[in-house]
Design a protein around this nucleic acid. Structure first.
Lengths: 365, 365
DNA sequence: CGTTGATTGCTACCTTAACCGTCATATGCT
DNA sequence: AGCATATGACGGTTAAGGTAGCAATCAACG
């Protein structure tokens, strides 16, 4: 009677369009062979990492993936037999088939890790325009950081428009975005500026350097804010009248797109060499997240500002689009804090570790 | 430059409709985790077999699946933990979730075994209307035979029409088709008749018995040919004039659908108790396949006919549709031989073992 | 140009744990 | 009572993986 049908029956009943969709299929697989997804993502991660690091040796790769060389050997041997990667006396590299497979597998892994659903869940919860998450955790793996950089770079490239003024912040994450940008000529005039003046980080990670690098990659113009750190109020006001500075400042304040990284408050404060009493103050104020000099508490309120010149959060409303890039489970709370602020339409590029952490935090309250 | 993209890149490039279809996905999985896919189909087979045999004990099931009890135990334990089957001291049975999973998984396995592609390949090669293959091999497993019966029964049910006259042959395979038919009222008047008179098999497997059983299941009429075996030519001619016999004969010759099984020539001949010299003759004539009394050589030519009354292959052209049911790797050559004959539109219901064997034979020549 | 140090792949050995064959026992159906 | 069922326990075989060391190659540097 209500017996389950044979293959053909099912097909006939549902019709030729009754194909299982990817998500339903993965659900079935997970119930019947739970290790499958795990093993598959594991191998995918190996291929993906090799793809980014090639040529790479086993020991380095093992360390990168958090496994031992012996274990990795078994996997590599298999992948080699499958013709997906070659191994020479100088390391491993993907074959053409391997590269193609990685590309095709990306969508599968994304779905298998249930990223699509969780991306939209977070976006709805925080009223973001869009969330883009890459598999993995930047905290654990260097490669994931690079991967996230690629995703952000790709997204940035997709929204470039004629005459756009792009303001960028600093940080290691944004440095990886700049590094991941593929050089090339893009649409017409684009100008890249640092969102604020230098704020005492390594030169490579300062907003100015990153702006320059991004501009170079995009073959765009860039202008810098040559200002010393920790300027007094009145001195800043005087300098702001300098024609060249003034011009750049106006450019910054008219930016149409803002690209920013997000950091953990205490870690950022320390990297900027704040004094112990200032660190204590931040703690007292409940600061957990930071972005380009602004510190936020859990409710998304600004509790502290590093003195500097440039874009002020107050005039951020005019900006058409904000792109935030940050990942790693350890940054989940910080990202959540910052994004609770009432930003203009914002796209978050993150990783699975942070995504999972944020959803967990939101679950708890 | 031509670097493989990240998740989002792929999606953006291909667009939201660029979802992997089932076949593409299975292809990926099969290249990356072949052993787990094997495990998946294995577990599916277990569930499927339990579904058909329940309640069933481990030893019986192990024998049926060609494995040992100990191995099966590990699998069953897993499946039980997953809530897919329950195990009582009377055997195993599927839970509702298990039944549902089996149903949903059917399409996956079909695709995973690459059956769809090979079905159409065979159909094109032999100019058949359609080929329907179930996973597995009837030679090895009793369950596959039943499964094939279900598939054939389902297909038969789908083509029933008002006033149809269905002629059936005999054999164990067709007996399983009859057994698999779900009883119930179907469209209007249907008449079931044996294609030919009794031909010296077990009563249960004779065309007449099967016709009766199918008719009962379909709640249809049936008429029988009560004729002794091996009738002399002139005696047959006389009997054919008997009103009742004549009426049935005309019914048979006006059949619109023909349902037949296919056997290996030598095996069938022996089952019909042909004399040694007849067996030798068949061999000499190159007979390899048989269906309802007709013996075919490799080229699909009729080389021998068991004397009997009823449908003659010469008037088969009038029949609108033929359904052939036969499976098992050992029958591949026989099926191929019979289907090389120039039948009207024919649908073959078979199994993976026979399908694979036939394609292999076609490959060799 | 040669030397040194760092990587690379690869082999060998041995421990450990998982797997599975085997036997024994308990329970319930017919 | 007898058969088929599950279930438990033991032990041997085998595969997986940790550890160590070696030859070859590459990059940097004196």
């Amino acid at each position: 009677m209500g017996q389950p049908g044979r293959i053909r029956e099912v097909r006939d009943e549902i019709g030729p369009a009754g194909t299982l969709d990817l998500r339903a299929m993965i659900n079935l697989e997970q119930r019947l062979v739970p290790d499958l997804i795990e093993a598959l993502t594991k191998r995918y991660t190996i291929l993906r990492t090799v793809s980014l690091l090639q040529p790479v040796g086993r020991r380095v790769l093992a360390q990168e993936l958090g496994t031992t060389e012996r274990r990795l050997r078994a996997e590599v041997e298999f992948l080699r037999e499958q013709g997906l990667l070659t191994v020479s006396n100088l390391g491993m590299a993907l074959t053409a088939a391997g590269e193609k497979l990685v590309e095709e597998l990306a969508e599968y892994v994304h779905e298998a890790r249930d990223l699509t659903r969780r991306e939209t869940a977070l976006a709805e919860r925080l009223r973001l325009e869009r969330v883009i998450a890459v598999p993995g955790d930047s905290d654990t793996s260097e490669t994931v950081q690079k991967d996230m950089g690629r995703a952000a770079a790709q997204y940035l490239k997709s929204i470039l428009t004629e005459g756009m003024v792009l303001a960028v912040s600093g940080g290691t994450t944004l440095a990886s975005v700049a590094a991941a940008l593929v050089p090339g000529n893009y649409h017409g005039r684009i100008t890249v500026v640092p969102a604020r003046g230098g704020m005492g980080e390594d030169l490579d990670k300062q907003a100015g350097s990153i702006a320059a690098k991004i501009a170079a990659k995009l073959n765009a113009n860039h202008r810098l804010l040559h200002l010393p750190d920790s300027l007094g109020e009145e001195a800043a006001a005087v300098l702001a009248q300098e024609p060249e500075i003034k011009e750049v400042l106006e450019l910054v304040r008219s930016a149409s797109v803002l690209l920013l990284g997000i950091g953990v408050a205490q870690a950022m404060a320390r990297r900027r060499h704040l004094r112990p009493d200032q660190l204590a103050l931040l703690d007292e104020l409940g600061a957990v997240g930071e972005t380009f000099g602004y510190y936020f508490n859990r409710r998304g309120e600004i509790v502290y500002v590093t003195p500097s010149t440039g874009l002020k959060l107050e005039n951020i409303k005019r900006i058409g689009h904000v792109i935030a890039v940050a990942g790693g489970a350890s940054k989940a709370e910080a990202i959540l804090a910052v994004l609770s602020y009432n930003f203009p339409p914002l796209t978050l590029v993150t990783d699975e570790g942070a995504l999972t952490g944020m959803l967990k935090l939101l679950e708890g309250r």
